[in-house]
Write a protein that binds this DNA or RNA. Structure first.
Lengths: 111, 111
DNA sequence: TTGTTCTATCGTAAAAAAACGATAAACTAA
DNA sequence: TTAGTTTATCGTTTTTTTACGATAGAACAA
C-alpha cells in the first residue's frame, strides 16, 4: 500500500488522522461525553447506557485507550476509566491548529 | 447492528463522528492542506503530490465532497476542487464545542 | 470453598474502507 | 475527425472496522 510516489504523508498528518479515527465513531464520542459528565471512572455503566454489547463497548474503550484519550485502572472486579486530559488538550490544540492554519492561508473559494 | 438498548446515539454524536471520519485518513488531511495552500482548485496536481494512484485520490476527493468539506466544479476536461469554508467553519466550531464542553464539566482525572 | 459479578479477550462473521488497474466519458488540440 | 488529456467510475482484492457470543480470569460475597 502507498508505494511512495513523490511525498509520503507527514507525521503530523498521520497523527491527526489517528486522532480523528479515534473520534470517528458515535459510540466513542458518547463514551467520552459520559466520562466527562461523570467526571471519571464508570465502567459497566457505559454498557448500560450504550446500545451495544459489553464486548463491543470494551473494544471501543480499548481503542480510546490506545489512542491515549482515556486512562484505565482496575478497581477490584471493576474497571475505572477516565479522560486523559493532557492528551485531550493536545488533540484539541492540534485540531485548532489545523483549522486555523488552513483558514488563515486564504479564505476564498474558487468554485 | 446496534439493536437499541437504552439510548441510541444522538444526532450530534453521529454528525461529529462523520466529520471525524472524513479527517481520519492522512491523504484527506493532506488534500485539505493542499487545497488551502493553493487557495483553490487543483485536481491532477494532487495526484502528482500524493503517494497514491489517481483513482484512489479521486475516491478520497469524493469522500471529502460527500462530507461537505470541499466543493468541486468541472472546468473543461479538468476538475476544480476547493474547500467549502462555510462547512469547515461549522466543523471547527463543533469540534471546539465538543472539546470545551467536555473540558468544562470537570478537569480532574480519577485514575 | 462456592457462587456471583465484572470485564477483557478470543473467535468469528459481516460490513466498510482503502487501494489499484482498466475503462469510459468529456473536453481540447491538431 | 482523430489523437491526447483529464478525471470519474467500475470491478476487484485486501485490509480494517464493527459487532456479537462465549469464555476465562479476577475479585468479592456468602
Amino acid at each position: 500500500m502507498a508505494t511512495a510516489k513523490t511525498t509520503e504523508f507527514t507525521q503530523a498528518e498521520q497523527d491527526l488522522a489517528t486522532f480523528a479515527k479515534a473520534l470517528a465513531h458515535p459510540a466513542r464520542i458518547a463514551i467520552l461525553k459520559i466520562l466527562a459528565e461523570q467526571n471519571a471512572c464508570i465502567c459497566g455503566k457505559i454498557v448500560e447506557v450504550l446500545p451495544l454489547a459489553q464486548s463491543t463497548v470494551s473494544q471501543h474503550l480499548k481503542e480510546l485507550k490506545n489512542a491515549g484519550l482515556i486512562k484505565g485502572t482496575v478497581e477490584g472486579p471493576k474497571s475505572c476509566y477516565c479522560i486523559n486530559w493532557e492528551a485531550f488538550e493536545k488533540i484539541n490544540s492540534e485540531f485548532s491548529f489545523l483549522f486555523t492554519s488552513l483558514k488563515t492561508q486564504n479564505s476564498k473559494s474558487c468554485c
